[in-house]
Design a binder for these strands. Structure first.
Lengths: 244, 244
DNA sequence: CGACACCGTTTTGTATGATGATTGACGACG
DNA sequence: CGTCGTCAATCATCATACAAAACGGTGTCG
């Protein structure tokens, strides 16, 4: 297995990144000095610096000698970085973020469906169909359902053959997983939404780009409504915490 | 001025990142060990490690003990990271990349125009108009024209008020700058394209979302054609190097 | 009194060396 | 032939030291 990086460095980066995106440090504010972070987090300066370098790479902070490490304005944050998005999700999802997320999904997912339909390879289409079958399989299990839903959407991005779409899908997969988890937290996927998935799948496999885009638009609409219902009244209050 | 980070670390990250995206290391291949990189680049291991950490944060490499540092498959790269995109541009732009770039611009920019029209603030609109004025100003200067064009498009993203659109704009700004540079390398912006910019600007300021989206679609079409002409025949060969 | 140059302090940037932890490979043994 | 243990390569982390840059204050000179 590829571990990616040491535990401590990743933990420090997550700790600092999470606190920043959660608003623990206001933009423009300076973080504690490296020496103080070492003491607070109980790690060496090397580890702190490597973690801060990662945050810098994501546009969260700017660091300069004598000035210290400053939190940059949110417009400079790389919101499409999977980790940044993950930290935001972990910090809690509010209505504004959900609106913005669906706004952008509505912007590119229908187009991705169109491209997947018109030029996806046979293998791509088989993968999409396979994930739909998994999603529609009897014997409901929450985790498996969420995974299948996520895989279904990601496979569509892959089928576009456009690296930007693929990266976009990877970037928002964390947020997608959250939204699937929210809408399916109590009940299995509604029959109507399952039907809409089927429409998308069928249109793509028929290489009908227009129909695929339209179906995806409908699916997003329905999903947004389901989520609004799940999030608004009886559900958790305004901000929803991610599962531990 | 905020320097962001030390010179050497940034230089090492750019050097390695650039070589990776340029194909100098094939995906799956292992980079030289940290010790060898120290020797090759003439820096200490600390610096190399901080640079590699940044590359890891962008999804370009995975590091594990004994295995060394491996280049990940391109699907894992965070293509929307401004630096990654910048390195790709610096490594040369081919027809495939241009197609994919315009595919995604065509997906996002019309919608951004629509949102900017319907809910951009007065200040946002003033900024857009200001950049257009600058673009249309007499007394042509290549650098100033490119900067104004870029600022015009970025201001539209900012006016959406959606952090994802804003990040997207920042991410592709490097590529946008390149494409503007290509199309305007010899002549100033064509009158027809200037007119299309005016249409976009006017539609946004009139808060006519549909017209703004349509105008932007036309503008992208025209721009793509101009670029195809500039890049194909007499221009530089198949791959175009970025300006130094 | 004001402007300018200088210096010291603070904080990050880089270098160096050492030690621990993890993992893949190879060989021994049942 | 398969399983398991040892080994070595490599990264992960730590501690320390010095260099460089930037800001603030201070002193001098006009």
């Amino acid at each position: 297995m590829i571990v990616g990086q040491g535990k401590r460095c990743a933990a420090v980066a997550s700790e600092l990144g999470g606190r920043i995106v959660a608003g623990g440090f206001a933009p423009g504010e300076t973080l504690p000095t490296e020496a103080m972070l070492c003491a607070q987090l109980g790690v060496s300066r090397t580890t702190v610096r490597e973690a801060v370098k990662q945050l810098h790479g994501k546009g969260l902070v700017a660091v300069s000698p004598r000035n210290g490490t400053r939190v940059r304005a949110t417009v400079h944050w790389n919101q499409f970085d999977p980790e940044v998005l993950g930290w935001r999700v972990a910090a809690g999802v509010d209505a504004v973020m959900l609106d913005q997320l669906y706004e952008i999904r509505d912007c590119f997912e229908p187009r991705a469906c169109q491209l997947a339909a018109s030029r996806g390879s046979a293998g791509d289409h088989a993968a999409i169909a396979g994930h739909f079958t998994e999603l529609a399989a009897p014997g409901w299990d929450v985790e498996r359902g969420i995974a299948a839903d996520l895989a279904f959407h990601l496979a569509i991005f892959v089928a576009t053959g456009n690296v930007f779409f693929i990266s976009l899908g990877a970037a928002i997969s964390t947020a997608l997983r959250l939204s699937f988890g929210l809408s399916q937290r109590r009940a299995p996927i509604p029959a109507a939404e399952l039907r809409l998935h089927e429409d998308v799948c069928h249109a793509i496999l028929s290489r009908d780009g227009a129909a695929a885009a339209l179906s995806m638009r409908r699916l997003l609409d329905a999903s947004r409504r389901t989520l609004a219902i799940a999030a608004a009244p009886g559900g958790p209050a305004q901000t929803l915490e991610a599962a531990p």
